[in-house]
């Protein structure tokens, strides 16, 4: 049986045009092809500034590509997110697509517990079950119970990072994008996140990730993908 890709990228290109700098063009990548199968963790390789995060954000629909397409399998169908109307992309993000960024970007003054429950509630899970699963997740990530009722604004970088991870892993999204999820974590917490990622791979989640930590990278990568191979000519 042929496994069908969860993400299919075809001749994707991205160039930033800065209109307020006289229309200056910053080409990032061009003609990029990539397929990610369920159960794969494709780790993006390349030096800083080569466009790894730009690719990641383009896959998520946060950046608009200059050309090409990104298809993501959503409820069994490949959806072209680069041409999908906004409400389709919003729906896809709600049910299919998790994204862990380097920084926690949340609404101020909302308690950690509510933030972690939110993706489940948005998916129609009852408050009781959402609360139970959030407790399990926060405990697994060793976030002190005394913190759960507090908004994460005053937490350390590592604690905020773990809130971020909890929000994205709580939903069992079939597709996950991980942009440096372990950047500000100590060794013990890194190991916990590595276990979460491996468990997700075991469930057949398709992942694309950026990891600067070599040990993490080597323990979760099923293959490497070099973004610099598609460097656009300046």
């Amino acid at each position: 049986m042929i496994t069908r890709p969860a993400i299919a990228v075809r001749s994707l290109s991205k160039t930033f045009t800065l209109h307020n700098r006289g229309g200056m063009n910053i080409p990032v990548f061009d003609g990029l092809d990539l397929e990610v199968l369920p159960g794969e963790c494709v780790v993006l390789a390349g030096d800083s500034g080569v466009g790894k995060s730009t690719l990641m954000r383009t896959l998520f629909g946060n950046y608009l590509p200059s050309g090409g397409s990104v298809h993501v399998r959503h409820e069994g169908v490949l959806v072209d997110i680069t041409h999908a109307p906004p409400h389709v992309l919003a729906n896809l993000r709600k049910h299919t697509f998790g994204y862990v960024s380097q920084f926690l970007r949340v609404i101020p003054r909302i308690a950690t517990m509510d933030l972690v429950m939110e993706p489940l509630l948005a998916n129609g899970v009852s408050r009781e079950i959402a609360h139970e699963r959030a407790c399990t997740m926060l405990r697994a990530l060793r976030l002190p119970e005394g913190h759960w009722a507090l908004p994460p604004a005053t937490f350390s970088g590592g604690e905020q990072q773990r809130v971020n991870i909890a929000r994205s892993f709580i939903c069992d999204y079939p597709v996950l994008l991980l942009d440096e999820p372990t950047a500000s974590l100590d060794a013990a917490n890194r190991a916990i996140v590595v276990d979460l990622i491996k468990a997700a791979l075991g469930r057949g989640v398709a992942m694309v990730g950026i990891f600067h930590d070599e040990d993490v990278r080597n323990s979760v990568a099923t293959r490497y993908f070099s973004v610099s191979d598609f460097k656009a000519a300046a």
């Binding site: 930033f16 946060n62 906004p86 409400h87």
Partner: peptide
Amino acid sequence: ARLMVMKGGHVVETGLTDQVLDDPQHP
């Protein structure tokens, strides 16, 4: 969730809010 940017009575850009704010296309 969605944004419409207006200038001089015209819509110059629309899209998902985070896309319009993080990767704005129109000058």
